[in-house]
């Protein structure tokens, strides 16, 4: 099973949705060929666990890992 096909862990899904909901309401996310997504559309993709939803969750996960490992802090403190 590939990373993208794995069912999204429910706790992770809730965390990501909470983060998505905190975005300013007029912001739209462009990711891949999905067009420009409103918060509601992003959340729908995440809940469905489709390809776009998985991409969004994976990018949150990668970011949180970079923060937790110190990689992110190290990078931003280098400039």
């Amino acid at each position: 099973m590939t990373e993208e096909n794995k069912p999204i862990n429910e706790d992770l899904m809730k965390l990501v949705i909470m983060r998505v909901e905190a975005a300013p309401s007029n912001w739209k996310l462009s990711i891949g060929s999905s067009g420009s997504l409103s918060k509601k559309e992003i959340i729908d993709h995440i809940k469905k666990g489709d390809e776009i939803g998985s991409q969004i969750v994976n990018s949150h996960l990668a970011f949180l890992k970079a923060v937790a490992s110190g990689e992110f802090t190290k990078a931003i403190s280098s400039v």
């Binding site: 912001w27 996310l29 991409q55 990018s59």
Partner: peptide, 13 residues
């Protein structure tokens, strides 16, 4: 190697 991402302002789409 990942989907390129950006936000835009929906008021100016």
């Amino acid at each position: 190697n990942l989907p390129f991402q950006f936000y835009n302002d929906g008021n100016w789409s």
